[in-house]
C-alpha cells in the first residue's frame, strides 16, 4: 500500500522568551491511502502542530514529512493542491457574505470552474443538510451550521487528503455524530480519500478511525487500530468506582504499587466522582477500597468495565484526560 502521509523523526521546537517547548518530539508515522487516521491526545500534546507542519503552515525544526510523496518543506505548492484543512472551533469565512457566497469565494480560489463549483456547492449543502441557510449571512449561523460550512469548504476542492483538527469541537452530540459519519462515508466513497484527524474525544477516535496514534507531550506513545490497542490491555483489570464526593483528593491511588493509572470524572450536578482505576492484578482493588473507606468516602457503585481508548491512554500516561470528559462519550 502506498503511503499518503509519512513522517520521520519530525520535531518542532518553539522557542519562547523564557522557555522552550518541544511540541513534537521525533514523531514517525505512516498513514496509508484511504485510511482514517486519528491522533489522540490531551491539550498541548502537539496535535495541531503536527497538522500545521503537514499542511505547510509551519516548518519543522528537524525531521522529514511527506504528503502523498511530496516533501512538505520543499514541495509545499504541490502539497497544497491535494490537501485541505478544517479546524474545529474556527469559523473561517466572511460574516457579511451568505453561506453560498462564502463557498463560492473559496471554490474560485480553489480554481473550480463555475459549473463545477455550482454543482459542488449545491451537493455539499444538501449532503450536510444546510441548504435552507444558503442565502443566510454567515454571521447569523449557529456554531453547528458554521462547522458544516467549514467542512463543506474543506471538501469543495476534492482533496486527496483531508486534515481535520478537532472537527467536532463545541458541537452538540447529534451534529457531531452527523459530521463524523459523513466524514467516514466520504473517505470510503472517494477514490483517494485519506483523513487525518486530531481529537481529544476518545469515542470519536474509536468510532471513526481505522488506526489511532496516542500522543502526549509531543511523543507518539502507541499506534494501532482501536481494537488492537484495547486488546493489549486485556491482562489488566479496570474498575469503575463511583463515590459521593467531588472534592476528595485521590492522589494516593497513583502512589500505590500495582496501580497502572486512574482517571477521575467529576459530575457537579450529581455531586459524584467516577474513578476509573487500572491495575495489573485484582488484589490491589481491595486495598484501594479499604483506603477509600478509611478516607470516609461513600461508595455508590463499583463495577468492572471493558477497556476503552481512554484506558489505553491511562495505561500509557498514568492519568486520565481530567475532567470534562463526561458527556463527550457521544
Amino acid at each position: 500500500m502506498s503511503q499518503s502521509i509519512e513522517t520521520r523523526d519530525l520535531t518542532r521546537i518553539f522557542k519562547g522568551k523564557s522557555e522552550t517547548v518541544k511540541a513534537l518530539n521525533k514523531v514517525s508515522l505512516s498513514i496509508g491511502e484511504k485510511e482514517v487516521f486519528g491522533l489522540l491526545g490531551p491539550n498541548g500534546a502537539g496535535k495541531t502542530t503536527f497538522i500545521k507542519i503537514l499542511t505547510t503552515l509551519l516548518l519543522p525544526t528537524s525531521g522529514e514529512a511527506h504528503v502523498d510523496g511530496f516533501n512538505v518543506v520543499k514541495e509545499a505548492d504541490k502539497v497544497r493542491k491535494i490537501i485541505s484543512l478544517v479546524s474545529g472551533g474556527e469559523t473561517p469565512g466572511y460574516g457579511i457574505l451568505s453561506v453560498r457566497e462564502n463557498l463560492w469565494f473559496f471554490s474560485q480560489l480553489y480554481g473550480l470552474s463555475s459549473a463545477v463549483a455550482k454543482e459542488k456547492i449545491k451537493g455539499l449543502m444538501a449532503d450536510l443538510d444546510f441548504e435552507e441557510y444558503a442565502n443566510t449571512r454567515m454571521a447569523k449561523l449557529s456554531t453547528g451550521y458554521r462547522q458544516r460550512l467549514n467542512l463543506a469548504r474543506g471538501l469543495l476542492s476534492d482533496p486527496k487528503i483531508l486534515f481535520l483538527d478537532e472537527p467536532t469541537l463545541g458541537l452538540d452530540v447529534l451534529t457531531a455524530k452527523k459530521l463524523r459519519s459523513y466524514i467516514v462515508d466520504w473517505a470510503k466513497k472517494e477514490a483517494k480519500g485519506t483523513v487525518l484527524l486530531t481529537t481529544h474525544y476518545m469515542a470519536e477516535a474509536d468510532e471513526m478511525c481505522d488506526r489511532v496514534a496516542i500522543i502526549d507531550q509531543g511523543r507518539i506513545l502507541a499506534c494501532g487500530s482501536p481494537n488492537t490497542l484495547k486488546e493489549n490491555l486485556k491482562e489488566n483489570q479496570i474498575m469503575k468506582v463511583e463515590t459521593a464526593s467531588i472534592q476528595a483528593d485521590f492522589g494516593f491511588i497513583d502512589k500505590m504499587v500495582g496501580v497502572i493509572g486512574y482517571s477521575q470524572t467529576r459530575n457537579i450536578q450529581t455531586g459524584t466522582t467516577t474513578l476509573k482505576i487500572m491495575v495489573s492484578d485484582d488484589e490491589i482493588f481491595s486495598k484501594i477500597m479499604s483506603e477509600l473507606e478509611k478516607a470516609k468516602l461513600k461508595i455508590l457503585a463499583v463495577n468492572k468495565t471493558e477497556p476503552t481508548l481512554e484506558d489505553v491512554y491511562i495505561s500509557l500516561v498514568g492519568r486520565g484526560f481530567e475532567e470534562g470528559e463526561a458527556g463527550t462519550h457521544a
Binding site: T55, R80, G93, Y94, G111
Partner: peptide, 18 residues
C-alpha cells in the same frame, strides 16, 4: 476576524494573488 487567512494561503494561488 474572518479566520480565512490560512485557507487563502493554502489555496493554489496563495496569498499574493489574493
Amino acid at each position: 476576524h474572518y479566520e480565512v487567512l490560512k485557507h487563502i494561503y493554502l489555496s493554489p494561488a496563495s496569498l499574493k494573488w489574493y
